[in-house]
């Protein structure tokens, strides 16, 4: 029973700012139906949304695979975008390669990855230039 989980998959369309956030919205809705604490839902929302929007802006889209357990959520974000050359740099608060027109939309503060790391209990990122990026996050429900 404790090992049972709900699996959800979302396609995150590239360069479609309108649909960014819809995977996060659907996951939030499920967690609310489960009665997960709102502070935990908030952490999931932020981590998930930042991951989603990164795939939209920087990678031309990707997929989000979500496994929801009784006491935790595993989020896997995978894209076949351009990849990140210097991961250490990318993880620094304030570092961004977002083009100017995207920054004008209010993105590109360079806070996405640092915030994902901050709000997730387990955070792992793998990336290869020209191949793509994979982010794995786990958030435990208190």
């Amino acid at each position: 029973m404790a090992n049972q989980f709900i699996h959800q998959e979302y396609l995150v369309a590239g360069n479609n700012f309108n649909s960014a956030g819809s995977a996060s919205e659907a996951v939030k809705s499920t967690l609310k139906k489960m009665g997960v604490a709102s502070s935990d839902i908030r952490r999931v929302a932020i981590a998930m949304y930042e991951g989603e929007i990164n795939m939209v802006i920087h990678a031309g889209g990707g997929i989000a695979l979500v496994d929801i357990y009784y006491d935790k959520i595993n989020i896997l974000l995978n894209d076949k975008g351009k990849g990140i050359a210097d991961l250490e740099k990318a993880m620094q608060p304030g570092y961004s390669t977002a083009p100017e027109e995207v920054q004008r939309l209010g993105f590109g503060a360079g806070m996405g990855l640092p915030n994902m790391k901050k709000y997730a209990d387990v955070f792992d990122i793998q990336s290869e230039v020209g191949v793509g990026t994979t982010v794995k996050m786990t958030i435990y429900f208190g």
Binding site: M1, Q4, I6, K32, K33, M34, G35
Partner: peptide
């Protein structure tokens, strides 16, 4: 208000969600 929670017990709520899917 907790009107959207499927069950007070999270296991039961999860089961309902799986059944729903």
């Amino acid at each position: 208000k907790d009107v959207f929670v499927l069950d007070e017990d999270r296991f039961t709520a999860m089961n309902k969600l799986m059944e729903m899917e």
